[in-house]
């Protein structure tokens, strides 16, 4: 049997909101270590990787070595509309069960339950190596969200140019070109901090449609971390409640290849 209780149900709600427009069906891979999810978008240029460690849950039980729970994202987000922001969530599935039961509770006054039919989803797991990035950028989620939204008005692709001292986001579209520079700002108050760590400068182009999609996970944490290496996928990482010990939601995006 699998049973997990999360007092802060909105965390799960935010996770599903963050991935629902990228993936239609996903597998929840449950083990005694927690929950993992890996899924690609339909065009196979981006990858979502979720890790929820048991520390994020108040209670966690998985009797089997592993269980795979196939979820339709549209149905899950529909179910999570039932979940209030202060509700706790309990997920429960029998070993050979065909459903995942969600219970949303606020105290003992209001208890809602929904049994979701599980799906059989074929998915291949890719091996994501532990990568040391040439450039790491930590910036407020609100800033990331704003840059991607504003730049999407001018073009389809955005160049991220990371150099010592700061990072430049630029777009070159039909009406003209523009750029936004964020300076390495380690000594300001936490919510405005921008940390740019560079071993070697990297400049890459990415599709704004995907960068904007990843921004939907912004409510999960205060800061987002970008990892860049030349000619490898960009990593966009949201630590759950800004604590890597609880887990993370990571997105990977293949760079545009310049002609």
């Amino acid at each position: 049997m699998f049973e997990a209780v999360l007092s802060n149900g909105s965390t799960l709600k935010k996770i599903f909101e963050g991935i629902k427009d990228l993936c239609t069906d996903v597998n929840f891979d449950v083990s005694s270590e927690g929950i993992k999810l890996q899924a690609m978008d339909s065009s196979h240029v981006s990858l979502v990787s979720l890790e929820l460690h048991t520390d994020v849950f108040e209670q966690f039980r998985c009797d089997r070595d592993s269980m795979t729970l196939g979820l339709n994202m549209k149905s899950v987000t529909q179910i999570f509309k039932i979940c209030g922001n202060d509700d706790s969530v309990t997920m429960r599935a029998e070993d050979e069960g065909e459903t995942l039961e969600f219970t949303f509770e606020k105290g003992e006054d209001r208890v809602s339950t929904f049994e979701l039919k599980l799906m059989d989803i074929d998915s291949e797991h890719l091996g994501i190596p532990d990568t040391e990035y040439q450039c790491n950028v930590k910036l407020p989620c609100s800033e990331y969200q704003r840059i991607c939204r504003d730049m999407a008005g001018f073009g389809d692709n955005m160049t991220i140019d990371c150099q010592k001292g700061g990072v430049t986001f630029s777009v070159d579209g039909e009406v003209g070109k523009g750029k936004i520079f964020l300076k390495h700002q380690p000594n300001v108050e936490e919510k405005h901090k921008v940390i740019v760590t560079v071993k070697e400068g990297v400049e890459l182009d990415f599709a704004l449609r995907y960068l904007n999609n990843f921004a939907k996970a912004a409510p999960l944490s205060d800061h987002v971390q970008l990892g860049l290496n030349s000619d490898t996928p960009l990593s966009v990482r949201f630590d759950i409640e800004d604590k890597a010990t609880l887990g993370s939601l990571k997105f990977f995006l293949a760079p545009k290849i310049k002609e």
């Binding site: 690609m40 196979h44 797991h125 890719l126 091996g127 990977f252 293949a254 760079p255 545009k256 290849i257």
Partner: peptide
């Protein structure tokens, strides 16, 4: 238009 490689080409199947 610049192209894009599939994400599988970067991450090996274990």
């Amino acid at each position: 238009k610049p192209g894009q490689k599939k994400i599988e080409s970067y991450f090996a199947l274990p």
